[in-house]
Amino acid sequence: MAVTPPTNEAFLREVDEELRRDQARDFWTRYGRWLIGAVVLGLAAFAGVLVWQNQRQQQAGEQGEQLATVFEKLGAGDEKLATKPLAALADDGIGGYRSLAKFTQADILLQKNDLKGAAAKFGEVVNDTGAAKPFRDLALIRQTYAEYDGLKPQTVIDRLKPLAVPGEPWFGSAGELVAIAHLKLNQKRAAGDLFGRIARDQTVPESLRQRAVQMAGELGVDAVDQTEEKKPQ
């Protein structure tokens, strides 16, 4: 009688394991060196990233200290001593430090009434895609302020309208410039309504709100928030 070949699970499992060992041995013979090389390259790249990140962090810390020193010198009135390090940061600073340095340069020019130079510097910050959006928006407002007398009122409205909305970080500053532009176009109702919204917005700086209350009142708009409780006499 012929011997029936074993077909139990133990035998099948043994065959399957042997087949996998053979496949693994063949795979390693063919590709083992390449895999080792890939692992080594991966580890080297990872180490390089860690070194780069460490260098960036160290550089950022140094530039933060440099910028703090610049602000100290400017606060003490030593503009000449602050000019050179400020220019270096504006040229080679990392991310936010570069934008803040340029913004500071623009403000200095604005204080000197160099409106054209200030507007150009603010424009560089506006176009810096590496800067945070609220910071770029503020630079756009400052740029518009520097260029205001040379801009058409409608240009001001079109440029700042997206920022002159309650809830936006710079609503008060942008809204005031837009409202004045409406006045120049004799759009008193639009101007009054916008001044009224600024006056009632508790997040807007107090000095700006007071101006808005006055302007809204002159334009016939009640700028008093009706939801506020009256203070006791």
Rank of each mutant, 00 (worst) to 15 (best):
S207Q: 15
D16Y: 07
K152C: 10
Q58H: 10
A199G: 00
L89G: 06
G217T: 08
R136V: 05
V40L: 14
G48W: 06
T129N: 14
F171R: 02
A190V: 07
E62Q: 04
E228F: 14
D201W: 04
L177E: 01
G123Q: 05
G32Y: 01
L194D: 08
A139G: 00
V51Q: 10
A174D: 03
E124I: 01
P134Q: 11
L41C: 14
P169Y: 00
V70C: 06
K133W: 11
N8H: 15
W28H: 06
A146R: 00
G48Q: 05
I94M: 04
P153R: 06
Q143W: 05
A106P: 01
A2K: 15
I157Y: 04
P205I: 14
A131Y: 12
Q233C: 09
L100P: 04
D128N: 05
V3E: 14
Y148F: 14
D222C: 09
V51P: 08
G64P: 00
L115N: 12
V125G: 00
L219F: 02
A179E: 05
I157Q: 00
L185V: 11
V213D: 13
A118C: 03
R211A: 13
L35C: 13
E17N: 05
E229R: 10
W170P: 03
G150T: 02
D149N: 12
A68K: 14
R33A: 15
V204I: 11
T69E: 13
E228V: 12
I198T: 02
D128S: 04
S207D: 15
L74P: 00
D201L: 02
L115G: 10
G77N: 04
R25V: 08
